[in-house]
């Protein structure tokens, strides 16, 4: 599904990704762990097409297509979804309006019919309660006045409605207590399927108890420095990142 080769990217003068390689086959869940500043969030932004980042070398192929050639919205329509670490507040745009606009824009880009209002409402009503999203949260401005947990759940609701092929979860566990974490993980797990891949970015092993990955990668200074099975996460929990800091330095 996703094939990243020798990816270099920078923001301003700062090179952050320095030759990153990563392959995620269909249906697999990969976790990326690493210390702060290793470039994890940058990777998620580069994959989703944030304009501030400049790719200086390398390639990203998504289902065989050149992902880097697409604008952010085209990537979304192609099936890339980023659950933001800090979801953006958009006052004045009702959550419902936003969800529907996003859904229809993606459908339109793929040459599909727009969803009818009753169908859309039915869909939201089916998915929102499991994530503990209230009617009030749907009526309010996007993420406006939401607690940290509510924002993260709202991200997962969007993911559930948009049904992407590749889900990138950027530190989705940050700022969540254990109960909120379980709700979010449950929502994510419900979306696991052989056709859908996931890239779970996290600093702590904790999230991976709930979203169990197929492969764990360690990222340091803009590159993947080690890969292994889910047990690698446990090992990191024990030993910390210090060893990698030395290796890579």
């Amino acid at each position: 599904m996703l094939e990243i080769r020798n990816l270099h990217a920078r923001i301003g003068e700062n090179e952050i990704l320095k030759g990153l390689d990563l392959t995620i086959p269909d249906g697999e869940v990969h976790a990326i762990m690493g210390p702060n500043g290793s470039g994890k969030s940058t990777l998620s932004y580069v994959l989703s097409g944030k304009p501030d980042y400049e790719v200086t070398d390398g390639s990203v192929s998504f289902d065989g297509a050149d992902l880097l050639a697409l604008d952010a919205d085209a990537r979304a329509a192609a099936g890339v979804f980023l659950a933001f670490q800090y979801p953006i507040e958009i006052p004045g745009v009702a959550n419902m309006t936003f969800l529907r606009a996003a859904m229809n824009a993606q459908r339109k880009a793929r040459g599909e019919e727009e969803i009818s209002t009753p169908d859309f409402l039915k869909l939201v009503r089916a998915k929102a309660p499991d994530l503990g999203i209230s009617q009030d949260m749907l009526r309010r401005g996007v993420n406006v006045g939401f607690s940290g947990g509510e924002k993260k759940r709202n991200e997962i609701l969007q993911m559930a409605l948009l049904e992407p092929k590749l889900c990138i979860l950027d530190e989705t566990d940050s700022g969540l207590d254990i109960d909120a974490l379980k709700v979010v993980a449950h929502g994510v797990n419900a979306l696991r399927s052989p056709k859908r891949s996931m890239l779970v970015i996290t600093h702590y092993q904790r999230l991976l108890d709930h979203i169990v990955p197929d492969v764990v990668h360690v990222m340091h200074k803009g590159r993947i420095v080690r890969s292994g099975g889910k047990e690698l996460a446990l090992e990191l929990e024990e030993s910390g990142y210090a060893a990698y800091a030395q290796d890579a330095a």
Binding site: D52, I90, F98, A101, A105, Q158
Partner: peptide, 29 residues
């Protein structure tokens, strides 16, 4: 706001549409 624009585009809204939505929200207040 660039971060709002990116958020909308990352959800699949084309640039013009995302702009329009943000302008409408701005005026809507």
């Amino acid at each position: 706001d660039r971060s709002m624009l990116f958020y909308l585009r990352s959800r699949g809204l084309p640039e013009k549409e995302a702009e329009m939505l943000l302008i409408q929200a701005f005026l809507g207040e």
